[in-house]
């Protein structure tokens, strides 16, 4: 410890060792992982996000949504993520291949969002407009649909404007204290629309070799949770 160059070298070797072990070696193994073909969907997984959803990912990043929401589902025996209906299976590296940046998050002040695109109506395309309307209202003022939520409101992603002629088709249907004054309407900005498109694109339910989707639930507890999750009002609060 009395020779400056030796001390410097020793510290450098110590620090470099973790770089090799934690970054270089994994990168050699999984850094160039290809997309995989899914027999279930007949498409490569993961697919590129549609343009609008990709823009929404940028909003998600810039508003810091990952300060409160994680995007990872832990396996059975590592917490109750699956029993809570946050996913059909655990998430693995494959799920994040197309994300940039990958926003895993480290705190859950709100629920996990890995599969928010599946919840409410379970992927039924007919329910899409319902889900869009739900998420827009939730973003405009979370407590319109989830009483007691601690999520901030995002009125700046919406425009409150006087109704000119007939009301806009995209205007939110707000009631009671949350409704805009008479003669006004609340319409989503392109940012809000993109963010909702991103949220609906969050689906990691495709069965993968390394993380197979287990067969449908049989026991009572799981059935109970999944049925609660299908109900629109309670789903995203879980």
């Amino acid at each position: 410890m009395n020779s400056t160059p030796l001390l410097f070298l020793g510290i450098l070797i110590a620090l470099a060792s973790s770089w090799w072990g934690v970054l270089v070696a994994p990168s050699l193994q999984i850094g160039n992982a290809p997309t995989v073909f899914s027999k279930e969907t007949g498409q490569h997984y993961p697919a590129n996000r549609p343009g609008l959803a990709q823009q929404g990912a940028e909003i998600y990043r810039s508003e810091g949504c990952n300060s409160c929401h994680s995007q990872l589902v832990r396996p059975e025996g590592f917490g109750n993520d699956l029993a809570r209906g946050w996913g059909k299976r655990r998430t693995v590296a494959q799920d994040y291949l197309r994300d940039n940046p990958v926003l895993l998050g480290s705190v859950r002040i709100g629920p996990d969002l890995s599969n928010i695109g599946y919840r409410m109506g379970a992927g039924d395309t007919n329910a899409q407009p319902v889900m869009v309307a739900y998420h827009l209202k939730h973003l405009y003022h979370p407590r319109t649909v989830a009483p007691g939520s601690v999520m901030p409101a995002y009125p700046y992603l919406f425009e409150k404007r006087p109704i000119q002629g007939s009301p806009s088709a995209s205007a939110l249907k707000l009631e009671g204290a949350f409704a805009p004054p008479e003669g006004f309407e609340v319409v989503p900005t392109p940012e809000a629309t993109a963010l909702v498109a991103y949220l609906l694109s969050l689906r990691s339910g495709v069965s993968l070799a390394e993380a197979p989707v287990p067969p449908p639930p049989t026991n009572a507890v799981e059935t109970a949770t999944s049925s609660t999750n299908a109900a629109p009002a309670s789903a995203p609060t879980r």
């Binding site: 193994q29 999984i30 992982a33 396996p75 059975e76 025996g77 590592f78 655990r90 693995v92 590296a93 070799a209 390394e210 993380a211 197979p212």
Partner: peptide
Amino acid sequence: PGVYEPYADLRSI
């Protein structure tokens, strides 16, 4: 690269 928690090896998946 194909073995994730909670599995021990490829065969147990």
